[in-house]
């Protein structure tokens, strides 16, 4: 075994979930640990926000986030665990207080709400509870 490139691409949680679901559905009999690790990883990812995402959502969200000068890992974190509060944005984005104004943080939160079904679903549930 020889490692050519230990990190040739980064995957979002959504991509991993879809790939593992395909692996699980394939009719090939899985030997060794593959069945265990796919089962456990799918279980973790199904409870994560990526379960409700779609490729269109993700690409549109990334396009909308383009003007804010975020780097790749920051965008990846936003897609994997969509923040819902300004506090979470502050955690994910380094030096966010200097790089982003308060209005920009609000705009980013708006964009995330618009494109992540999971946040919208939570909001709907909240409203239902209030009613």
């Amino acid at each position: 075994m020889e490692i050519v490139n230990a990190n040739c691409a980064t995957l979002s949680n959504y991509e991993v979930l879809k790939h593992l679901q395909k692996v699980k559905e394939s009719k090939m009999k899985h030997k060794g640990q593959l069945a265990t690790i796919t089962y456990e990883t799918i279980r973790y990812l199904e409870n994560a926000p990526c379960n409700d995402q779609s490729p269109q959502n993700i690409t549109e969200c990334l396009k909308a986030l383009a003007p804010y000068n975020l780097n790749k890992t920051e965008k990846l974190m936003i897609i994997n665990t969509p923040p819902t509060t300004a506090l979470e944005i502050q955690l994910m984005i380094e030096e966010s207080e200097e790089r982003l104004t308060e209005e920009q943080v609000e705009q980013i939160l708006d964009i995330i709400t618009r494109y992540s079904p999971h946040v919208i679903k939570d909001k709907v549930e909240e409203n239902e509870e209030i009613e």
Binding site: M1, E2, V4, A6, C8, T10, L11, S12, L76
Partner: peptide
Amino acid sequence: MFILAEMKNV
């Protein structure tokens, strides 16, 4: 969180 690693093997 997840990455792709390129490897070769016989």
